[in-house]
Amino acid sequence: MEILLAIVIGAAFGAVLDRIGASNPTVIGKMLNLTSLKLMKTILLAIGTGSILMFGGQMLGLVDVGHMSVKTAYVGVFIGGLLLGAGWAVAGFCPGTGLVAAASGRKDALFFIAGGLLGAAAYMASFPWVESTGALQGVLGGKVTIGAVPGSGYDGLFSALPGDIAGLVMGAAFVVIAFALPERLNPRGERLARAH
C-alpha cells in the first residue's frame, strides 16, 4: 500500500515541479536574481496552502498529528543551507529538481546528479569529522516547532503558543506574502520584459 502511495504522490510531485517551472534553471536563476518572482510566489503559496490544510485538518481531527516529522535545528543546518544555496544558484538545480530535470531530458542535469552523488559520498566520508566539530549539536531546542503542536511530541520554541494555531497563522501569512510579493524586485527585469 505504501509503495502504491509512493508511486502516486511521487509522480504527482514530479509532474507539478515540471509544470511550475521549478526544474528549469532559467526560472530558478531569474527568481534568485530577483528579476522574476513568479516561482517564489508559487512556493510561498504552496507552503501556506500545505500549512493551512495540515494544521486545519489536525484541529478538525482529520489529519494524524503523528505523521509530522520535524528535523533538528543545528548550526550545520545554516551552513549546509548556505552551501546548497550557492550551488543552487550556479547549477539552477536542487536535489529534487535536478532529478526531475534529468528525467525531462536535460543533459546538464545528469552532470548535476553525478556531482551530487559525489558530494553525498564526500559527506558520508567526512561525517565523523563534521560530527566532531559539534556543528550537528541541536540548538534552540533541537526538534522544535514555533509553538508546541498538541499530540506531536515536539516542543515549541515559544512554549506558551499553541502550535496548531501558530501553524494556521503562519500558513495564512505565507499566502498573504505570496499575493503581496511583486512579480519582480530587480528593476532590470522590467527593462528586459519590455525589450522582449
Partner: peptide, 24 residues
Amino acid sequence: AFIGGFVVLYGARLAGGCTSGHMM
C-alpha cells in the same frame, strides 16, 4: 552543473535536508 551538484548535495546532507525536506 557538476560542481554545483557536489556543493548542493554536500550542503543538503550537512543540513539534513534540502529544498523539499527543509524548506517546503
